[in-house]
Amino acid sequence: MSTRTIEIIVETNGSTRVQTRGFTGSACTDASRFIEEALGKRTSERTTPEFFQTTEQQQRLREGGG
């Protein structure tokens, strides 16, 4: 299983960014929801290609099946 991480980036102007790695589908938003709620109102959201992968697709990629 791949490593899952949640990064919180605080910019010099005080804005924050939450970035998830190793999650697929909506698991990333589920995992980071509590952090986003603690940080305040969301002003934007940008998804990664992993957001659109299913667990099955990710498993095939890890096994080299493309």
Rank of each mutant, 00 (worst) to 15 (best):
T43A: 15
T5Y: 06
E36H: 04
Q59V: 07
E37P: 09
T55G: 13
D30R: 03
V18P: 07
I9G: 10
G40V: 02
R17L: 05
S44T: 04
Q58A: 01
A27N: 13
G64Y: 08
N13M: 02
I6G: 12
N13R: 04
R42K: 13
L39T: 00
L39M: 04
Q53G: 08
F23I: 09
Q57W: 08
T24I: 11
E63T: 06
A27D: 15
E50W: 04
R46V: 12
A27P: 01
E50F: 07
G65A: 00
F34W: 12
G14Q: 02
T5A: 15
E11F: 11
G22M: 00
A38D: 15
T5M: 14
L39W: 08
E37Q: 12
P49T: 01
T48V: 00
A27W: 09
G65P: 01
Q58K: 03
G22L: 04
T12I: 05
E56H: 09
L39H: 02
A31M: 01
G40S: 06
A38W: 08
K41S: 13
S15P: 05
T24E: 15
S15I: 12
R62S: 10
E56F: 07
T16V: 00
F34V: 13
K41P: 01
A31T: 06
F52K: 11
I8A: 04
T43G: 14
S2K: 13
T55W: 01
T54V: 07
E63G: 05
Q19C: 00
I8D: 10
C28K: 00
R17A: 07
R21N: 12
I35R: 04
T12F: 06
T29N: 13
D30H: 04
S26Y: 00
G22Q: 07
R4I: 08
T16R: 09
R42G: 13
